[in-house]
Design a binder for these strands. Structure first.
Lengths: 218, 218
DNA sequence: AATTTTGAGTGAACACTGTTTACTTTTTGA
DNA sequence: TCAAAAAGTAAACAGTGTTCACTCAAAATT
């Protein structure tokens, strides 16, 4: 039990590695990938640029780590809502809104997480890593709620849970991206009655849920 | 009438300018902004890199022109559908699908058009250029259909056309971006019954329209 | 305890990037 | 014809990610 097989050398190495990530995170959060240069990063932690390549194979690898960490946080927030035992409708709506809001809280992370990198497995459920990844796990939460909604009779029973979940996800993704890239979204003119972002997000979520609901007509 | 005040010199200048744009377009369409370098572009058209700066203030300016041209094409496609005199429902659904498909036909253009550049006016209707821009004009088409749908009684009459249109747009944008960045979207596993993209786009559009439709309950 | 081996860290270079500046050459208008 | 304007360029500046040969200190082995 005492032998955790972690030598002091490894401990030191991890410390340096973490300091690189921490510094990178600070820059990335504020300026995104464009503002994060290896040389700049090296200066910040008092190492040579080449040193960073002893810890990360490439800049992309380093940035991927930041993205993964972000998606872990996102997943945690989603679970914080999804695991509640509140009524289904509010739980669902809250989940959708939380997804967008968490994305907006780290716009650079969120946007970067969706531009395809090499090791990106997309949402291909057949990929071995899929269920392990935070992105995949976040999707499974959404898909689980989808199934619950269908079982409860809230949603049309002719829906394919996976496809419906992917449709919803796309819509959430779109709003998040719009709000990230267009600072004024969804403000109209300089009009007085423009809704704040939070209420617009809720409206959006409301539209999405309505699109799935079961009805008498048709 | 004969004096269009376009000198041979201006004509030549425009020819060179167009050749720059044409070459840039070819590279950009296939490799995106990352693959488009001024030096590479200069080689392709047999000019020095510095020459390009006699025609464009910056690379961003040049790329902006490509984006604008793309959005003009997108708008044209939208109008091709929207101006038809078919039934409202099919017209609306076709418009939404066309938007996504046109985005997918030029993924680099589409994705790049939404990362904010300096002169980007977003969707702020108060901005003087807003109605002139293709993006703004495309939005007005969508918003017009929104109003039509409400008038016809298809959509709930308590909807704000502008906000509803922006919600729909965000959802379309999301699906387009997902399909651009995740090559397998929305494929499930290697399952047989995975729908092709076109039917998924239609399903998505269907969900969106349903979310706006008027109903008896509630 | 001495010696070998491993690994951390580095300076300098490579091959790029967008952009600017000073300069030459060509074209145009008077 | 000649001055002025415009077109085009080579070279440099200030960056970028990355690699390589190298040093030096720490760990492992004898």
């Amino acid at each position: 039990m005492t032998d955790t097989s972690i030598t002091p050398a490894e401990k030191r190495r991890l410390k340096v590695r973490d300091s690189i990530i921490a510094a990178a995170e600070r820059v990335f959060a504020q300026e995104g990938e464009a503002g994060l240069s290896i040389r700049r990063l090296a200066k910040k932690i008092d190492y040579s640029p080449a040193a960073i390549y002893k810890y990360f194979a490439s800049k992309d690898d380093l940035v991927d780590e930041l993205k993964d960490a972000f998606f872990d946080r996102l997943l945690a927030q989603i679970h914080r809502i999804a695991d509640k035992e509140t009524a289904f409708s509010t739980r669902m709506a809250d989940c959708l809104a939380t997804y967008v809001q968490e994305g907006l809280s780290s716009p650079h992370h969120y946007a970067a997480a969706f531009v395809g990198t090499a090791k990106d497995t997309g949402l291909d459920a057949s990929h071995p890593d899929f269920t392990q990844q935070s992105k995949g796990r976040a999707f499974r939460v959404l898909m689980g709620m989808m199934e619950e909604g269908i079982d409860l009779g809230h949603f049309r029973d002719n829906l394919d849970p996976e496809l419906a979940a992917k449709s919803i996800w796309a819509s959430l993704h779109g709003l998040t991206m719009m709000m990230i890239h267009i600072p004024t979204y969804p403000r109209l003119s300089a009009d007085s009655e423009a809704p704040d972002r939070e209420t617009f997000i809720q409206m959006h979520a409301d539209h999405l849920v309505r699109g799935l609901e079961s009805r008498n007509d048709l």
